[in-house]
Computed example of a mutant assay.
Amino acid sequence: MRFRRKKKASTRLTLVLVSLLIMIVVSLYYVNSRLMPVYLEYAEVQTEKVASYVVSKAINSRTSSVLDVNDIIVDLPPGTSEMVTTKFNTDIINQVRAETTSLVKEYLEQAENGDLAHLPNLENVEYDVGRMEAGDGIVFFVPLGQALNLPILGNLGPRIPIRFHIIGNVHSSVESTIEEFGINNAYVAVSIHLEVNVQIIIPFASKSAKVEQYIPVAIGLIRGTVPHIYTDGGGEGVQPSLEVPVPYD
């Protein structure tokens, strides 16, 4: 009789422990699934900070600085008409583009290999140099309270690992904007559009993201010949003409 009672008690205890274990697992899964988007969003923000810092540091180390737009403008000899045609000096632009892209790639590779000199010193962020030197990409830890934006916890709680690495090569393209400025003048800006694709990895999830930056190559004002008569074509109806006095010999 006592043996049967002990067996029943043991069976009940086993059922209670198994049920408790299942409840804990289900609760952890539910909490993790609800918090996963928060983790990913926070990891993406921190990753963009780190990657943007590395890119900016590479750009600042360039030998070339921002040029005057007139330094990259070439005037073509006039043909049958008296109009002067201009074009960009692609040799200078491509040289700056190649130098910038190469430096950004080099700095990102050095950062992934554990060179802390190329990484920002962010508050409450600890880099895992060992894993970085082992080729796991850029790895850092942040407190759980900071990742969840819970001021009560602050820097308490387990430290969440965040890892990201570069996917493919650094992509770059040249973009230019031209805006009308005054009478027959144009404000021109030529820049390099850099794109760095990264893979962000946190416990039980990963996400691809893109870090973008625009690097100015040349900025300035191109002055054209002021016409003798100027008419504003905007608006409706007949527009008044402005006549510029021309000196005569």
Results as ranks from 00 to 15, higher is better:
169 N>V: 11
180 E>L: 03
130 G>T: 15
119 L>W: 01
194 L>N: 03
191 S>H: 08
159 R>G: 03
148 L>K: 01
181 F>N: 06
147 A>K: 02
167 I>D: 04
210 K>D: 07
166 I>V: 15
182 G>M: 11
191 S>C: 08
135 G>K: 00
164 F>N: 02
199 Q>P: 00
151 P>Y: 10
216 P>W: 09
139 V>H: 04
150 L>P: 01
185 N>F: 03
215 I>P: 00
130 G>S: 12
217 V>E: 12
117 A>C: 00
125 V>I: 15
124 N>W: 09
206 S>P: 03
141 F>A: 04
198 V>F: 11
139 V>G: 04
188 V>H: 07
170 V>D: 08
153 L>Y: 06
190 V>T: 13
133 E>T: 07
211 V>D: 07
130 G>I: 10
126 E>T: 13
214 Y>W: 06
188 V>W: 01
175 E>Y: 07
175 E>C: 03
146 Q>D: 13
216 P>H: 07
134 A>E: 12
183 I>V: 15
213 Q>F: 00
177 T>Y: 06
150 L>N: 11
183 I>M: 05
198 V>N: 07
210 K>I: 14
214 Y>N: 09
156 L>A: 12
177 T>I: 09
182 G>F: 10
131 R>Q: 11
178 I>D: 15
175 E>F: 08
205 A>M: 02
181 F>C: 02
